[in-house]
Simulated assay, not measured.
Amino acid sequence: MSSTRHVMLIRHAEEPDQAPGILGVDEQGRPDAESLSVRGWQRAGALARLFAPCGGPPPQPLARPASILAATDAGKSHRPLCTVLPLARLLGLQVDTRFGSEGEIAPLLDAVRASPGPVLLCWRHQALGGIAQALCGGAPRTWDAARYDLVWVFERQGEGWRFTELPQRLLHGDG
């Protein structure tokens, strides 16, 4: 039986886009094509306060994460990790980067289920539907590639999970 009763999935924050000339930068603002765009870093900072607001709990149905996991893949960007670093630092948590977005889902889900509290996963959009389906058959099968502004929330109910899609509404233009 799982001790985790709350799982939240987010896509990594905005990435560089060469067509309109949106560049990637590291935390210090140096060019880095494998990192987030400036808007992505803005979202990462805003996400920290969404999940860990000053003076209280996050809005329902969100929960303050006790564990944070971010996809890491050899030869790919480090955007999922960059997205959750401000939150992890704020909460004093280490980000678990043992799993890749292209790997087996079962070991990831075992780690999620073994977590003692709410879990936040930050992944690449291509894999989020598979993770969601493995948790809850009624969840979406795909994540809209144009959306960076959602949280998929799974709350344990008996032996199953209840799914909620929540808009972040953190930055101008969010849905």
Rank of each mutant, 00 (worst) to 15 (best):
R64Q: 10
R64L: 01
P65H: 05
P65G: 00
A66Q: 12
A66S: 09
I68C: 05
I68K: 01
I68E: 01
I68Y: 01
L69G: 10
L69Q: 06
L69V: 10
A70D: 07
A71I: 02
A71W: 09
A71C: 09
A71T: 05
T72H: 12
D73C: 07
D73H: 07
D73I: 04
A74M: 04
A74R: 11
A74Y: 00
G75W: 06
G75L: 03
G75T: 03
K76A: 12
K76S: 13
K76Q: 13
S77M: 06
S77P: 07
S77C: 11
H78L: 05
H78W: 14
H78T: 10
R79K: 09
R79T: 12
R79F: 09
R79H: 11
P80M: 13
P80F: 08
P80N: 12
L81T: 13
L81F: 11
L81Y: 12
C82P: 01
C82T: 01
T83K: 13
T83I: 13
V84W: 01
V84K: 04
L85E: 15
L85N: 07
L85P: 02
L85F: 09
P86Y: 03
P86L: 04
L87C: 12
L87P: 13
L87F: 09
A88G: 08
A88R: 06
R89Y: 01
R89D: 15
R89F: 00
R89S: 13
R89H: 13
G92K: 05
L93G: 03
V95P: 06
V95G: 09
V95L: 09
T97M: 11
T97F: 01
R98W: 07
F99M: 06
F99L: 09
G100C: 09
S101G: 15
S101A: 15
S101T: 05
E102W: 04
G103Q: 14
G103E: 14
G103W: 01
G103I: 01
A106K: 11
P107L: 06
P107F: 03
L108R: 04
